[in-house]
């Protein structure tokens, strides 16, 4: 593939030299997003549980060193709090260990899993700032062997402050302080959306090489939108809360404290026959060059 560029090599070398003498007992908890250097340090110290949410077969072909496999579909198959706890225990995730999650798309799948872990009470969780593909292209540590860790027994402390359902959305619709964010792409939003929701397409959130833009940029974006820390935000997307999961973490990164995810999203909303706003006065789909 590609060879390493000079600045990056320096970055990696620097990490190495820093690591040896450092022997601090406890690291600060992860804060929603984990950069490459931090993860490499954690791997070396053996102080992290890395979760690979890609398909099992992709995991078997190669994954980040020490990572365990949890295909997103496995979590979605049964995502009530008890089942999620069972998954944490099976993966050997104890209450305090930092968890870093990655995928091969643009962070959306990882976000959905990370949100679920937070939901059942595992706070020390973050998304890796890059996708697996980028990690691999950078020539960082990967391996093929399947990892398994001793079973744990994680306590269940459901955090309903980050959760929303259809009923909650309905109440929020006319509350000026609560902002409903649709994370789908613009043309899908224009076609139909939950009444009174605003559109922040997931495509706005990423930068060229990272699954999320810098906190500074994200902060400016939401300030432009007239959103501030007094607002409560509820995010949703098309079906299972992946794109909106990414929005959840983007908004957290931007410094918003009160963010909720509607994991069942627009798919459930429609199946419940709830009202939608449709925009039929323009033929915008015909602008697409696809």
């Amino acid at each position: 593939m590609c060879s390493l560029s000079k600045p990056l090599r320096q970055k990696i070398d620097r990490t190495k030299t820093i690591n040896k003498p450092a022997k601090k007992p406890s690291l600060p908890p992860l804060n929603n997003i984990c950069d490459i250097d931090t993860l490499r340090t954690l791997i070396k110290k053996n102080k992290v549980r890395i979760v690979d949410v890609r398909k099992k077969e992709d995991y078997l072909k190669g994954h980040i060193k020490t990572a365990v496999s949890l295909p997103l579909a496995e979590l979605l198959a049964n995502d009530d709090p008890e089942s999620i706890i069972a998954i944490l225990n099976k993966l050997g995730i104890s209450e305090n260990i930092p968890v870093v999650i990655y995928d091969d798309t643009f962070g959306a799948l990882a976000s959905r899993v990370a949100w679920s872990f937070k939901f059942v009470g595992h706070e020390n969780v973050a998304l890796l700032e890059v996708t697996y593909d980028t990690w691999r292209k950078l020539g960082l540590e990967i391996e093929r062997k399947s990892n398994k860790y001793p079973k744990t027994s994680h306590p269940l402390k459901v955090d309903y402050s980050i959760f929303a359902d259809a009923e909650y959305i309905e109440k929020a619709q006319n509350d000026k302080n609560k902002i409903i964010i649709d994370s789908r792409e613009r043309l899908n939003f224009l076609t139909e959306h939950i009444p009174n929701s605003k559109n922040i397409p997931y495509t706005m959130l990423r930068s060229e090489n990272s699954i999320l833009r810098s906190p500074l940029e994200l902060k400016r974006f939401i300030e432009n939108r007239g959103i501030d820390s007094n607002n409560e935000i509820i995010t949703y997307c098309g079906s299972v809360g992946t794109l909106s999961g990414l929005t959840f973490f983007a908004l957290k990164t931007a410094g918003l404290s009160n963010v909720k995810l509607y994991p069942k999203s627009f798919k459930e909303w429609k199946s419940l026959g709830k009202p939608k706003t449709e925009f039929k006065d323009a033929t915008y789909w015909d602008l697409s060059a696809e």
Binding site: C2, S3, L4, S5, K6, P7, L8, N31, I33, C34, D35, I36, E129, V130, T134, K137, L138, S207, E208, N209, S210, L212, R213, S214, P215, E217, T253
Partner: peptide, 13 residues
């Protein structure tokens, strides 16, 4: 916190 990252290796041209 994530830094803004630029990898020349990923965007050669």
């Amino acid at each position: 916190m994530a830094k803004s990252i630029e990898y020349d290796v990923l965007s050669s041209s």
